[in-house]
Design a protein around this nucleic acid. Structure first.
Lengths: 237, 237
DNA sequence: GTAAGGAGAATGTGATCACAAATACAGGGC
DNA sequence: GCCCTGTATTTGTGATCACATTCTCCTTAC
């Protein structure tokens, strides 16, 4: 996790909305969660409340709360000796996560499709956004930048899913990504990214063509392919 | 719950097999979660860390951690003024939760079916367990005991889902139930329980007959019916 | 070289305090 | 009756301390 723990107290009270005071542990949680989903934390890596708090220049309390939330979501786990680590993967977990991802994420994709079906501007904006991220994905592949690819991949999916305007479903899927995020990085690091069949482009094409079935298929294939790569990388360990 | 021994001292194992020291906040969390899933906490009800801690004769710290976990799972929510309440329901949440429950819970049911397909004893044990719970459900309906019905209903579903031996999927579904649990009680309290089409018996019949498709259908219908009741009760408020 | 052992550091957990914000509640005004 | 107001209480949050357990690492013995 890359944390530049420098906060500027006056900046937030002046320009920001005064409707709600900033909560430190929310900030810690948001950044730690983002780091995990983006695949910036390797599986098995250990964390400590004091160290994490120090990275944010706060006490251990906000770090405790952020860690507790991520443990609840399965992103972090507590060892039998009470040490906190980034969750590891098992074959059965891969299978179950695949089982959960396919129906939920295809549903979100189709909902995004339906939500923008009668809003040409929103549809166009979504396509533009996805295309932009996809270009960055290509650049990451070209440059072999594993971390950046992992991050852009998450961005692509959630840009699509967010358009579904389904916060509850989105929350559930985010919980799943919190468990697979650390492995996205491992996967592309081990197998490389050149031989990927780019289902992202297929998804964009489907949106352009107004083909919901094709969109669903591309999302499903992307999930299956990604999870299979995680499985392969894990078994070759 | 298995205590993992890091190293095995040959002769020094005279010490008693001391269990892991109990973690207080785990206990608080487990009981609070159970209360929510069983529908014993009404939506909108407020909680406080000190009060909750006092109920368990502990300080505020374990209560804070338990509450934080349940907030992360969507069972509790923090108001704009930072008060902690049991989450309320909205029509869109009902729709999304239904969307998530159907594929996940039918999958768990089918997995439970498959897991016990070649284990007649396990299948019979599951059927017996479900039948026993179903009898208690009938008794609750007869007695008009809303709280007990809500609790037994959760027990029935999770007895079936646990047999799937899919902890990750089960965890996701538990997260969903944490969000609908508080409304199960409201629903049956408002509409009564007499006019329910008992899909539970259909599910048991399907297990007895070895009919996976029927099992899936009964679970799906039970979900749809239950969520529709929540929807009706909410709109008639 | 390998294993054992022990001293010191690090860690999670629970308790307690301080503080600002929000809520509850009393009394007084109309 | 209702509404406002000022006070007192409650609440979430962050910080800090205490303590038992666990981890790290260096030394020692064989």
């Amino acid at each position: 996790m890359t944390v530049k723990a420098r906060k500027s107290p006056p900046a937030k009270s002046k320009t920001k909305t005064r409707k709600r005071a900033p909560v430190v542990h929310e900030e810690v949680y948001a950044r730690l969660r983002r780091a995990i989903i983006d695949g910036q934390l390797e599986p098995g890596r250990s964390l400590s409340v004091r160290t994490l708090g120090a990275q944010f220049s706060v006490s251990a309390m906000p770090a405790r709360e952020a860690i507790r939330r991520l443990v609840a979501l399965g992103a972090l786990e507590v060892t039998p000796t009470r040490r906190i680590t980034v969750s590891r993967m098992t074959p059965s977990k891969i299978e179950e996560l695949t089982d959960a991802r396919i129906p939920l994420e295809t549903r979100l994709a189709v909902r995004a499709f339906e939500r923008t079906a009668k809003k040409p501007k929103a549809r166009a904006a979504l396509i533009a956004k996805l295309s932009k991220i996809d270009a960055r994905l290509d650049a990451a592949i070209e440059a072999g930048d594993v971390a950046f690819y992992s991050k852009a991949n998450a961005e692509f999916h959630f840009a699509l899913y967010t358009a579904a305007e389904a916060p509850v479903l989105l929350g559930v899927v985010e919980g799943l990504w919190l468990q697979i995020g650390p492995f996205m990085r491992v996967v592309v690091a081990r197998l490389g990214t050149a031989d990927l069949v780019d289902q992202h482009k297929q998804a964009i094409d489907a949106l352009v063509a107004g083909d919901a079935k094709k969109l669903e298929t591309s999302v499903r294939l992307d999930i299956i392919e990604g999870m299979r790569m995680i499985s392969d990388a894990s078994s070759k360990r």
